[in-house]
C-alpha cells in the first residue's frame, strides 16, 4: 500500500538529479521502516522524501509536480504510519487490510481534493499578482501553521 505514494513521489521529482537522489534514499528508508515496523526509520525516510520535494521546488521545477510530490510524501507517512500502528496493536494478518484500506481511502480523497483545490486556484490566478496579495497570503499561511496545533 505504501508503495503507491512512494512511487508517485519518485516519479514527480524524477527530473532533478539531487532531488531524485534524496527521494530514492528516502523511499528505501520508508519501505524498510514499514517492513520493520519502526517509526523512526520511516520518519527518516519521509523526511528524505520531503527534502527532495523542497530541493526540486528550490530548483524551480514545474509547480504542479512539486505539489503532487509533496502530497505523495504526506500520504506515504500517513499510510505507512497507520500500517505500523495496526501491526503494533493487532499484529499482521489478512483481515487487517480492511482497516488500512478505509483509512487510506479517506486520506487519499482528502489529499487529492486539497491538491485539486490548490492547483485549480493556482491555474485561475492571474500571473501579475500585486505584491501585497502575495504578502497577505503568505502571512496568512504563516499564521495558520501555529494555529493548527495538531500539525506543529
Amino acid at each position: 500500500m505504501t508503495l503507491v505514494p512512494v512511487v508517485v513521489c519518485l516519479v514527480s521529482v524524477a527530473g532533478n538529479g539531487a532531488g531524485l537522489l534524496f527521494a530514492i534514499a528516502g523511499a528505501l528508508a520508508a519501505l524498510v521502516g514499514v517492513e520493520l515496523g519502526r517509526r523512526l526509520v520511516l520518519g527518516v525516510g519521509v523526511a528524505g522524501l520531503f527534502a527532495s520535494v523542497l530541493i526540486v521546488g528550490v530548483a524551480g521545477y514545474d509547480p504542479a509536480f512539486v505539489a503532487v510530490a509533496g502530497i505523495a510524501a504526506l500520504l506515504t507517512w500517513d499510510i505507512a504510519d497507520h500500517a505500523i500502528s495496526i501491526a503494533r496493536q493487532l499484529g499482521t494478518g489478512p483481515d487487517r487490510r480492511r482497516l488500512l484500506l478505509a483509512h487510506s481511502a479517506g486520506s487519499v480523497i482528502v489529499a487529492v481534493g486539497a491538491l485539486a483545490v490548490v492547483l485549480v486556484g493556482f491555474s485561475v490566478t492571474p500571473r501579475d499578482l500585486p505584491l501585497l496579495a502575495v504578502v497577505l497570503l503568505l502571512a496568512g499561511l504563516l499564521a495558520l501553521v501555529p494555529a493548527l496545533r495538531i500539525g506543529r
Binding site: 521546488g57 509547480p63 512539486v66 502530497i71 504526506l74 489529499a111 500539525g151
Partner: peptide, 28 residues
C-alpha cells in the same frame, strides 16, 4: 516550503504548503 518559496520566488513550493495545510486542517 513557504519560507523558501517566498524568499526565492518559487511558486511550486508555495503550492506544496497549501494542500499540506488543508490536510492538516482536515485532521484537526
Amino acid at each position: 516550503a513557504i519560507g523558501l518559496g517566498a524568499g526565492l520566488g518559487k511558486p511550486g513550493l508555495l503550492l506544496v504548503a497549501g494542500p499540506l495545510l488543508l490536510v492538516v486542517g482536515y485532521a484537526a
